[in-house]
């Protein structure tokens, strides 16, 4: 066998194995969709696929539930959090990496410890704090804590990007008469764009899917976000798995679609983020 044929055979085998593994990997998602597409009679069949399929469940749950409002809640909280995290983290990273303000390294190290704090140990004090602020059942009550917990990670990424950028660029901006704000806006931000994209997408995913704090802060039905409503539907549609899984599919769908759209930019940012040294 020629090396070319051998490498082609190996590539085919590897692709085949990857597809088989992926097939198993996708079972939960396929199963979810499959139950959502079932008629009530088949809903409890212990099978991955059934026939025929029906879209009735989707029609029912969309008609009966205020999914649009819940989606909007998730969107407001997530977009606001992402905006704050990106702005605040990039400003701070700029202060550390480029301005090198006195004490900024100490602050940086302190903020880094946030990354080592499990949210589980923060929910109790945060819940009390938000209650004292009167922020229970408000968007801001989720947005600000999420931002505070998200900034350190974004800051680490952006700082290392800025440090890898040629320092001469910032000196050139200074020579060209930019003040610190102008340097930040016209030089630093465009320079770290792949990192900004990466941080934005990652923060979006994390915030959109955050569960613990949302569970505690949002108790009023009209404020709830997409991640915490599945529980109540599991009670509501206990006897009707078709409807339950239709609603779960709808809840999971927006972020999956979004990720598929932006994954190229996300991975590019991740790959660029590793280029150091």
């Amino acid at each position: 066998m020629t090396p070319l044929a051998r490498s082609r055979l190996r590539s085919t085998v590897i692709h085949l194995v990857l597809f088989i593994v992926l097939g198993f990997w996708m079972i939960p998602q396929v199963y979810m969709l499959s139950i959502g597409l079932r008629t009530p009679a088949q809903a409890f069949d212990a099978a991955l696929f059934t026939w025929p399929v029906t879209f009735d469940n989707f029609v029912t749950v969309i008609r009966d539930n205020p999914l649009g409002g819940i989606f909007l809640n998730s969107l407001i909280v997530t977009v606001a959090t992402v905006a704050i995290v990106v702005a605040v983290a990039s400003l701070f990273a700029f202060a550390c990496a480029i301005l090198r303000l006195k004490g900024s390294l100490f602050l940086y190290t302190t903020l880094l410890t946030t990354l080592m704090v499990p949210l589980a140990s923060m929910v109790l004090p945060l819940a009390i704090l938000l209650k004292n602020f009167g922020w229970v059942n408000t968007y801001i009550g989720l947005i600000l804590p999420y931002a505070a917990l998200g900034v350190p990670f974004a800051m680490v990424i952006l700082k290392s990007f800025l440090e890898d950028a040629p320092r001469e660029l910032f000196e050139a901006a200074r020579v060209d008469g930019c003040n610190a704000w102008q340097t930040y806006w016209h030089v630093a931000l465009p320079l770290v764009r792949p990192a900004l994209v990466f941080v934005t997408i990652w923060q979006f995913i994390v915030t959109w899917n955050e569960f613990f704090l949302a569970l505690i802060v949002l108790t009023k039905a009209e404020m709830k976000t997409l991640t915490i409503v599945p529980m109540q539907y599991s009670g509501l549609y206990m006897a009707n798995p078709g409807a339950l899984f239709a609603v779960l599919t709808l809840i999971a769908l927006p972020l999956i679609l979004l990720y598929v759209l932006v994954q190229r930019a996300f991975v590019r940012g991740l790959l660029a983020g590793a280029v150091k040294g």
Partner: peptide, 9 residues
């Protein structure tokens, strides 16, 4: 994809 699928789902 499992990473971006809502954990409650």
């Amino acid at each position: 994809l499992p990473v971006v699928t809502s954990v409650s789902v």
